[in-house]
Design a protein around this nucleic acid. Sequence first.
DNA 1: ACACAAAGCGGCACTGAGTGACAGCTGACA
DNA 2: TGTCAGCTGTCACTCAGTGCCGCTTTGTGT
Lengths: 194, 194
Amino acid sequence: MTEAGLRERKQERQRAELVRIGMRLFSEQGFDATTVDEIAEAAEVSRRTLFRYFGTKADIVMEWARGTTAVLTASLRDRPLDEHPMDSLNAVFVAMCESFIERPRTMHRVSVMIERTPSLRPYSLLKHAQWEDALAAVLRERTPEIGELRSGLLARIAVAAFRTALDEWMSTEGDTVPTAYVDRAFGAVRDGLV
Amino acid sequence: MTEAGLRERKQERQRAELVRIGMRLFSEQGFDATTVDEIAEAAEVSRRTLFRYFGTKADIVMEWARGTTAVLTASLRDRPLDEHPMDSLNAVFVAMCESFIERPRTMHRVSVMIERTPSLRPYSLLKHAQWEDALAAVLRERTPEIGELRSGLLARIAVAAFRTALDEWMSTEGDTVPTAYVDRAFGAVRDGLV
DNA sequence: ACACAAAGCGGCACTGAGTGACAGCTGACA
DNA sequence: TGTCAGCTGTCACTCAGTGCCGCTTTGTGT
C-alpha cells in the first residue's frame, strides 16, 4: 500500500477540478440555474461519478468554503499558547483581512455579493458555522482543559464579532480592509460588553 | 372586500393544519424520511396544493420556527428597561425554554430533528440569523443610544450562548427543558469568558 | 511479463422535490 | 341567482440524489 499513490493524487486533482468548474458555473449563471449535468459534462465525467465525489450539489460550494476554514485554523494554530484565546481569535480574523490588503475593493465586492445575495445567504451561514466548529476544535486541541462549553462559546462569539464588524464595514465604501472594524468589535467584547 | 373573509380564515386554518401534521410526521419519522405526499395525504389535500402553501418542504419547518422569533421579540419588549441587556436576553431564552416545560421530550425530539438533519441545517442557521436581527432591532428600539455595533454584538452573542447551550442539551436524554444549560452558558459569558 | 483483486467508473432505472399548464369547482358580491 | 376571480386537483415534466450492475483501470504479488 503506497502512502500517496497515483490514484489518490489523481482523485485530488479531479476533486479540485470539479470545484473549480462548479464555482465558475455557479458564479456565472447562479447556483440554482446550474445543473449537476452541466458541471459533469464540463468536467468530462459522468453524473454518477460527480455524485461519488460530492454527495450534494451544495457540497461543491462547501468544499470551496473549506479553504477559508483551513486558513483560519492554520492561523490559530500559529498563535502563542499563553495568549488569551479571544486575543488569538481576534488576531486570526485580522490576519485573514490583511491577506486581502492589496485588493480591499475586491474583498468588499465579494463580501457584499455573498452576504447580501438572498439565495447565497444560507451558504454564507453554513460557512460561518463551519468556522465556529473548526475554531472550537482547534481551541480544544491546543488546551484540552478548556472544555466544550467554553471553546464553543469563544469560537461562536469570535465569529459573531467578525460578522458584526463585516456588517458595519460592508455599509462603507470599502476603500480599506476591515481590520479596524474587526479590532473595534473584538475590543467591545473584551471591554465587558456583557 | 371583507376584512377577514371565510376564504382567508379557511386558508389560515389549512396552513396551520399542514404545519401541525408536517411537524408531527417530521418528528416521528425524521425530515428526509417523510415525503411531501405523506403530509398531503394526511392533510387530505393534493400534493400541488401543499406546494402552493409552502414553496419547499423545509418551509413547513420554517413556518413553525417563525413563531419562535415573534415569541422572543415580544418577550424582550416585556423586560424592564433598567435591566442589563444581556440579562434580558438570558431571561428571554429561558422563558422560551420554559414554555415547553410540560413537554420536554417533544422539544428535545424537535430540536434534534432540526439541528441534526443535514438538509435542514441551512434553515436552522437562517432562523438563528433571523433571531439575531430581530433581537438587535428590539434592543435599539428600547434604547436607541445603544448603537449598531453594541446591539448587533449583544444579540449575536446571546444567540451564540443559546446555540451552545442547546448543543450540550441535545447530547443528553432530554428529560428536562434546557433552562439550566442556557443559564450556564449566559453565566459563562457574564463571568468574563473574554 | 503476467495474473489477480480491489477500486473507480459509467450506464440505467428508480424515487422524491419542485414547477408549469390547464380544467373544474367554489366562495364573494352584485 | 348569475358571474367571476381565485382556489383546487390532475397531469406531465425537470432535476437532485441513489442503488445496482457490469466494465475498466490500477496497484501488487509472483
